[in-house]
Write a protein that binds this DNA or RNA. Structure first.
Lengths: 349, 349
DNA sequence: CTGAAAGCGCTTACAG
DNA sequence: CTGAAAGCGCTTACAG
C-alpha cells in the first residue's frame, strides 16, 4: 500500500511532474497542454489510484481548505442544528470541517486557538453568544484569517450574523398581550448582565409598556442551576406554582425545552395549558410541535442564518471586502400553535 | 503577521534548527541538550509566539493527528450524541476531529473517501448501521489505516463496538409480558432485511415464544415515510388506532421520538397511556423523561460505546494488535418509568 | 551535545 | 507546450 505520488505519475506517464500537476489541477488548457497528453495523464492517475496529498498542497500554499466551526457558548440544540447546517453547506463546497465545541472553558479555548494556527485553517465561523472571551485569545488569529461571528452581540470590525433578541421577546410578549393576557412571567434564564438577556428584557418591557402593563422586576423568574433545559424548566414551573401568591395568565420561556419542562410541572399539578396559563417557547425545535400541548414558539431562522454566514464567508475568502464589516440582523418570527389558547388574535404582532 | 518558523527560532536563539526542533518536540533530554539551551529555546519560542506547522509535520511524518468520524447511517439524535462523546474524548487526547455526516448517499461517500486519503487521517471511526456500502469504497483505505466500526452488524476482520439489537427487543418485550400484556404491536421501522430489524425481530419473537404468545407478522407495524421520527410516530399511532380492529395492550416503538409521536396520536383520540395502551421507547433520549407520560425506554449506553471505541482505537494506533479484531457487544438496559403502567413486575427482565 | 543536509509531496516561477 | 529546480516547514538519520 505505497502511496502514489505526482512523481510516480510522471514516471509512469512519461511527462514531467509540473505537467502532471497542471493537468490534475485542471489547468491543462491554461497551459495549452495537448489534449492527448491530458487524457494520458488523467487515465494514468485514475489507473494508479492517485490521491493528492492535501498536507503537501497546504504546506506549499500556506493555507488549507479547512474551516473551523467553533462553539464557545452553551451547547444548545438549536446551536447544534445551526452548526450542522453550516457544516453541510461548506462541505458541499469542498471544505474540510473542523468542529470545536467548548463552552466557557478558557484553558480549552487557549489551546484550541493554538491548534487553529497550527493547522492552519483558512477560516473560522464562531457561534458564540459571548464572543468576547474567545476574541481575546483570537486577536492575532483573526487579523489574518477569516472570521464570521454568529449570534453574538454587536462587535466592531468583524462580519456578523445576528439574531435579534429584542424583537424576539417583543413578539412573544405582543402575542400574549394581543390575546388579552396581562399577568405575564418570563423565565429568562440565569441572572446576569449578559447581552442576550439584556436585549430580551428590553423587548419584553417595550411590549408591556405599549399595553400600559407595569414591567417590574417581579415579572422575571430567574434560575441558576446547571441542569439541562428540561429539568431547569421543570424546576421553574414548580417555582412559579409554589413560590408565587397566584398563578400568572401566561409564561414566556427562555426556550422550547424549558417550556416543555414547565409544561410538565404544570400538568403534574393539574394546571391546564392554555386554559389556566398560556405558554410560549422559543427556538422552534422539533420537540415543540410534539409537546403535550403543541407549543407556540419563535422560529430562530437557523437556515437563513447558516446561509448568510456561509455567503459572507465565501465572499471574504474570495478577497471581496466590500461592505466589510457586514452586519446581518435576522428577525425571528412567531409560530402560533396551541399553548396560548384559541382566543382570537386582535391585530398583528 | 508573518509566520514564525523553526528557522527563525534557530537564527534568533543561535542554535541549529535540529536542536530547536528536538527541544520543542520535548526530546531535549533524550538528546542530552543542556538545560540552559533548552530554556533559551523555549523562551524564544514563547516570546516569538511560535506555532508549529501541522501540515509540514504531517507531510514529513506521512500521517496526521486527524481522526475522522463518519456517519453513514440515518442521522438520529442518539447517533449524534454518541459521536459527540467520541469527538470530545479524542479531542482531549490531542486529535483533530473531522466530522462527516452523510446518509446513504453513495456518491458523497465515494468523494469522501477520496478526501480521507488526501488528508491523510490517522484513523477512522465509522458509526454506520449499514457499513457494507461504505466499506466497499474504503477497502484500500482501511487496509493501511485504523478503523473502528460502531453499531454495525457483524463484519469480519475489523474492530467493532456493537449494540445488541436482539436483546434490546427481548428486554422491551419481556418487560411488557411480565406486566401481563399479551397483545403487543411493534412499530419496527421500514420493512426490509436490514440487520437491525432482523435482530430486533428475533429478540421480540423469542420473548413472545417464551410466554406462549403467537409471534405473527401482524405484530409488526411498518412505515415507509421519510418524515422525521416524531411525525413518523404520529402517523404510526393513527395507523394503529384506525386501521386495526381493536387497540392492542401495548406498543413497542422503534425509538423514543417515534414513541412520543405515537403518544400524541393516542392522546388526541382520548386513548390513555398506560391505562388503555402501554408504550415502550428506545434510546433514552432526554425527551423520553419529559414526554407527556414519562416514557419507559432502553438505555443505549452511548457513553460505554464511545469509551470502548476510543479505547480500541488508541490501542491500534499504538500498534498493539493483540486480540484483533476485537468485538465488543454492548447490552442496552431497561429504564422503567410510567408509560407501561404501575403493575407489579413479576420476575426480572 | 550540536549542526548540515536530505526529503516528505506538492506548486510555481523560470527557462527553453 | 514541456521540463528542471526551488521551496513550503518540518523531522530524522548522520557526522562530528
Amino acid at each position: 500500500m505505497t502511496k502514489v505520488t505526482l512523481k510516480d505519475l510522471a514516471v509512469e506517464s512519461g511527462f514531467a511532474v509540473s505537467t502532471v500537476s497542471a493537468v490534475l489541477r485542471g489547468q491543462g488548457d491554461l497551459y495549452h497542454i495537448a489534449a492527448s497528453t491530458q487524457k494520458d495523464i488523467k487515465e494514468t492517475a485514475q489507473r494508479m489510484e492517485y490521491r493528492k496529498n492535501l498536507m503537501a498542497k497546504s504546506l506549499r500554499a500556506g493555507q488549507s481548505n479547512f474551516v473551523a466551526i467553533l462553539d464557545t457558548s452553551y451547547n444548545t440544540p438549536i446551536r447544534q442544528l445551526r452548526q450542522r447546517l453550516i457544516a453541510q453547506r461548506l462541505k458541499n463546497l469542498g471544505f474540510q470541517i473542523l468542529v470545536y465545541d467548548f463552552h466557557w472553558m478558557e484553558e480549552e479555548q487557549k489551546k484550541l486557538l493554538y491548534e487553529l494556527e497550527e493547522i492552519p485553517v483558512s477560516g473560522l465561523i464562531m457561534d458564540a453568544t459571548d464572543a468576547a472571551a474567545a476574541l481575546e485569545y483570537a486577536q492575532r488569529f483573526i487579523k489574518r484569517q477569516l472570521l464570521v461571528l454568529l449570534d453574538t452581540g454587536y462587535i466592531r470590525g468583524i462580519d456578523q450574523v445576528l439574531l435579534n433578541r429584542r424583537s424576539l421577546s417583543y413578539a412573544m410578549a405582543k402575542h400574549l398581550l394581543n390575546l388579552g393576557y396581562r399577568d405575564i412571567y418570563y423565565t429568562i434564564g440565569i441572572h446576569s448582565a449578559y447581552w442576550p438577556i439584556v436585549e430580551r428584557r428590553k423587548g419584553f418591557e417595550k411590549a408591556l409598556k405599549e399595553y400600559g402593563v407595569p414591567a417590574g422586576e417581579d415579572r422575571y423568574i430567574w434560575d441558576d442551576e446547571k441542569a439541562d433545559a428540561y429539568h431547569r424548566g421543570y424546576t421553574l414551573g414548580k417555582k412559579i406554582i409554589f413560590s408565587k401568591k397566584s398563578l400568572p395568565d401566561a409564561v414566556m420561556a427562555l426556550n422550547d425545552h424549558i417550556a416543555i419542562g414547565i409544561m410538565k410541572a404544570f400538568h403534574e399539578q393539574g394546571i391546564s395549558i392554555p386554559d389556566d396559563v398560556a405558554l410560549v417557547g422559543a427556538e422552534d425545535l422539533p420537540e415543540s410541535e410534539f409537546a403535550q400541548v403543541r407549543l407556540t414558539t419563535m422560529d430562530f431562522k437557523i437556515d437563513v442564518m447558516a446561509g448568510k454566514a456561509v455567503e459572507i464567508f465565501l465572499k471574504r475568502l474570495k478577497g471581496d471586502m466590500r461592505d466589510f464589516p457586514r452586519r446581518v440582523v435576522i428577525e425571528p418570527s412567531l409560530i402560533v400553535r396551541e399553548s396560548c389558547g384559541k382566543h382570537k388574535i386582535q391585530g398583528g404582532v
